[in-house]
């Protein structure tokens, strides 16, 4: 499962070879959440992340673990957006974004893995004798409007 693989990778970064492969199964609370360095007097914003339904979800920013929901962060103002991944056991991971130009409250709707058909972009089932599924796209037509 992707979530546990990611957890394992992040944990390895933190504790390295000391714990070895066993770390992959460590509870997430063993990870030390990353906090940004904030200079004295530097303007900051408050970032809040909640989930719906309310479950413990882990929030990652790249390879950095930010914490578990409900999560409140203090972040340097105007330091660019944060592309985060919110992961909870039994739910599909959600890639979303926090903004730092002002306080930002993010409520992430989590979808159970079993309900992925309800999401836009789910491809309807292919008829059994329909042949190979084509890619469907043609290069070069993405882009501007």
């Amino acid at each position: 499962m992707r979530a546990s693989r990611r957890l394992g990778q992040t944990a390895l970064v933190v504790v390295g070879a000391l714990v070895g492969a066993a770390v992959a199964s460590q509870p997430v609370l063993a990870l030390r959440p990353y906090t940004p360095r904030i200079e004295a007097g530097q303007p900051t914003v408050k970032l809040s992340i909640r989930t719906s339904p309310r479950v413990k979800a882990r929030v990652f920013w790249g390879r950095l673990f930010l914490g578990e929901t409900p999560l409140d962060l203090r972040w340097p103002r105007d330091s660019g957006p944060l592309d985060v991944v919110v992961e909870a056991r039994g739910y599909l991971p959600v890639h979303t974004r926090l903004y730092t130009f002002d306080d930002d409250r993010l409520s992430v709707k989590l979808t159970p893995e079993a309900d992925k058909k309800s999401l836009f972009g789910y491809r309807h089932e292919w008829p059994a004798d329909g042949g190979p599924i084509p890619d469907g796209g043609s290069a070069g037509d993405a882009g501007g409007r």
Binding site: R2, L92, P93, V94, H95, T96, R97, Y99, F101, D104, L106, V108, K109, T111, K116, L119, F120, G121, Y122
Partner: peptide
């Protein structure tokens, strides 16, 4: 904001 599915993961567009 809106969500969509791509390769079994959910992506959320947020436009402030």
């Amino acid at each position: 904001s809106r969500q969509f599915l791509f390769r079994d993961e959910v992506y959320e567009i947020r436009l402030p």
